[in-house]
């Protein structure tokens, strides 16, 4: 899923400073699963902003709603009756949400309430980690299900660099050297020689290097 973090309340307060009537829109997709922009978090943000404004004696009226997905116009269109009733709209979806909303409702002003961070999963309750870089050409099978592009700080494809020490990466004591993990897994499985395989250079045109990407599935288009 796409993982995000809520922006600081200070930053959000600054964004919405000129507005007195606001709609906060949550998303029931990824941001609900990573507990950052679902209906619960929308209510918490609304309450926090209301308290802050009451304290400043500059009251704000905030309404909330959470739609199925903000990355789908079918659901985005459900806001058409209400979206015009507000000075601005704060989206708690990943970066896709406020873009879809502002493309659909060109007259309205949209703000992102979260910072979209990575594609990943929950490794334990409340802790998420990056697992995929969305490079467009998956090769994790070559590394026993471990992605060196997303999980190596340098995205190396040919073994650890000199910054690997005792299984940790030089960037932080909390970051494991993923190449250490790949080699350990290969040894464990008795397949270390797999790493000797010569592979053609990776085609980075399918990643961001090739510009904004588009996916067309002819069988689904109308």
């Amino acid at each position: 899923m796409i993982v995000a973090d809520r922006k600081s309340l200070e930053e959000i307060q600054e964004m919405i400073k000129p507005h007195r009537k606001l709609l906060i829109v949550g998303c029931k997709g990824c941001v609900t699963v990573c507990n950052v922009g679902g209906s619960k978090e929308v209510e918490i943000l609304a309450s926090a902003l209301t308290i802050a404004r009451k304290k400043e004696n500059n009251e704000i009226e905030i309404d909330t709603t959470t739609i199925e997905r903000q990355c789908d116009n079918e659901y985005v269109s459900q806001l058409k009756e209400t979206v015009g009733n507000y000075d601005a709209v704060l989206s708690m979806a990943c970066g896709v949400g406020p873009q879809f909303l502002s493309e659909y409702y060109r007259e309205q002003k949209f703000y992102p309430a979260v910072n979209t961070t990575f594609f990943g999963g929950a490794v334990s309750h409340g802790i998420w980690e990056e697992r995929c870089a969305g490079c467009g050409t998956c090769i994790i099978h070559d590394f026993d299900g471990i992605c060196p592009i997303a999980r190596c700080a340098k995205s190396l494809l040919h073994g650890p660099c000199g910054g690997s020490s005792n299984g940790l990466c030089e960037i932080s004591k909390e970051t494991i050297c993923i190449w250490d993990a790949i080699v350990a897994k290969k040894i464990e499985q008795g397949r270390l020689e797999d790493l000797l395989k010569v592979r053609p250079a990776k085609d980075w045109r399918t990643a961001r290097d090739g510009g904004p990407r588009r996916s067309i599935r002819e069988e689904l288009t109308r």
């Binding site: 619960k40 918490i44 309450s47 926090a48 308290i51 009451k54």
Partner: peptide, 11 residues
Amino acid sequence: VDIIHLLNAVE
């Protein structure tokens, strides 16, 4: 008791 209950009380 949830976060929102405590915030609502303050609000």
